[in-house]
Amino acid sequence: PQQTPIRAAMYSIQQLRGELTSISDQPSGILMVYFKNCTVDPSEDITKRVDQFGQIFSQKFAQAVGQRCEGLGKKRFTLGVQLYYKVMESMLKSEEKRLSVQNFSKLLNNATFHTSLLACALEVVLATYVGYSLKNGGSESPETNLCFPWILDVFQLHAFDVYKVIESFIKAEPTLKHDMIEHLGRCEQQIMESIAWKSDSLLFELLRQSREDGTGEQAEPPAT
């Protein structure tokens, strides 16, 4: 049948859900092996953090879309967690191959890494559904409140930390569709062009540090 914008958006949702049907919202056996190989086992922190962010996400989702939608928020969050664990496993496999390392204790005990990865996974889920809402309800649909960078505020994340995850996320998840990769690319641009330069941004601290220890590249001379 003729592919209308709504049908295309519904297809994206079905594709996303289809990709995740066989993925659990708990860490897989392979992930548990990576966790056990860590100097400090991160399993408990990871599952506890997912539970905490699940509650925050559902509450914020209901505030943004409507109180009767808290259950819907939970469903969205579960899809995000499934994608989060799927991509984490894929990232660790490629890092293991690249670095010939099996102990990822520092990375897997880094709360910012986990929160940024979960935020990126949720952004993929939210953008998939918002894409449908926009085409189905127009800009009046309350779900448009969930557009990027809504998720950064929900998790109180520095934009620059999510920026660091996006490229590796795209590399680690080959089933991402072209329009979703484009969307994540636009998120990167939005971060780099504006959000990352807000006064409380992490970027200023990093620039200051790189200037102090001289690791920063020399600024290019102004064009004549």
Binding site: L99, F104, K106, L107, N110, T112, K164, V165, I170, G185
Partner: peptide
């Protein structure tokens, strides 16, 4: 995917980006 501009070097990955290499 040719529209997305990959910028990481071969020797860079998520471990380096989060200072966990």
């Amino acid at each position: 995917t040719q529209d997305y501009h990959f910028g990481l070097e071969d020797h860079e990955g998520i471990s380096e980006l989060f200072d966990c290499d």
